[in-house]
């Protein structure tokens, strides 16, 4: 078996998470409901306009934004998954020993090659395009 699984954990160990989840939701709901009940409500057309420093807002706010953000997001997805791959390896680092380390160096070399490529390709040059 490749992954070391500690033996003394049970699925039921995760149950308290539900407790905390309920607490968190309860708190948030409480806050929202109370502020809803307590706060005044005075609507007007002008007030409901988007706040853009007093300048009249033009066009739809859901406009396309710089594609750099998408690129960042996409790169994150890729690199993050690669990082996830490293977690089991890191946990079992000692067990895997030298071979494991060499394999990870290869993995990281490939990852960094891609990384270098991406950087050189100008993902972070925000002032272009």
């Amino acid at each position: 078996m490749l992954l070391a699984v500690p033996t003394n954990y049970q699925p039921s160990d995760f149950l308290p998470i539900i407790v905390q989840f309920v607490l968190a939701i309860a708190f948030v709901a409480f806050a929202m409901v109370v502020s809803h009940l307590v706060g005044p409500r005075r609507k007007s057309v002008v007030k409901d306009e988007a706040f853009e420093c007093g300048i009249e807002s033009v066009g739809n706010a859901r406009t396309p934004i710089s594609v750099k953000y998408f690129l960042t997001a996409i790169l994150f997805v890729l690199f993050d998954v690669e990082v996830i791959f490293m977690y089991p390896w890191a946990v079992n680092f000692r067990a895997l020993g030298q071979t494991g380390f060499i394999e990870m160096i290869v993995f990281l070399a490939l990852l960094m090659a891609g990384f270098t490529y991406v950087i050189k390709k100008g993902v972070l040059r925000w002032n272009e395009a």
Binding site: V67, I74, V77, L78, I84, F85
Partner: peptide, 27 residues
Amino acid sequence: DPNGQIFVFFIMAVAAAEVAVGLAIIV
């Protein structure tokens, strides 16, 4: 049998790559 879970890792990695390409295409 750990093989199945390792497979899952690969599916996730590949799915990420797919997401990257897919989102790029959609954008």
